[in-house]
């Protein structure tokens, strides 16, 4: 499966692994599964991972994607790491509010603000 294109753009900045999505729509189950696996690998490769997931450019997101984010959050916490989300479009943020997931995720308006929030 080495030839499968990554669904994430990843770079490390000040000790924080900063992730953006390649796709504008995070709906397709196969893609979501791949995103979950890629994020799991990133988390597992670090001690006390610091992960920032930016939703810049993301227009649609399904409940399956929310499920993957919850799994990622649990994984980061189990490694005593920190997870931040940023750049969430207004309509997508409403999905977080409806599902009350805005209470379990640390969500910041911009990636810079999220970066500044890591302990």
């Amino acid at each position: 499966m080495g030839s499968v294109a990554s669904r994430l753009n990843v770079r490390v900045q000040n000790g924080v692994t900063r992730v953006e999505f390649v796709d504008r729509n995070i709906l397709d189950e196969t893609n979501i599964q791949q995103i979950g696996e890629e994020l799991a690998r990133l988390i597992d490769g670090q001690v006390n991972p610091k992960l920032l997931i930016s939703f810049k450019g993301v227009e649609h997101l399904s409940s399956a994607a929310l499920g993957t984010l919850i799994t990622v959050n649990n994984r980061v916490r189990s490694k005593e790491g920190q997870l931040r989300l940023s750049d969430i479009d207004t309509q997508i943020y409403e999905v977080f509010v409806i599902t009350k997931l805005n209470k379990i995720f640390k969500i910041h308006e911009t990636a810079d603000k999220a970066l500044a929030s890591f302990a």
Binding site: S62, S63, A64, L66, G67, T68, I70, T71, N73, N74, V95, I98, T99, K100, L101, K103, I104
Partner: peptide
């Protein structure tokens, strides 16, 4: 249930 990764589809449809 908030940390269970499934079960939000119906809720979003209703919302």
């Amino acid at each position: 249930n908030i940390e269970i990764p499934s079960g939000r589809g119906i809720m979003l449809i209703k919302a």
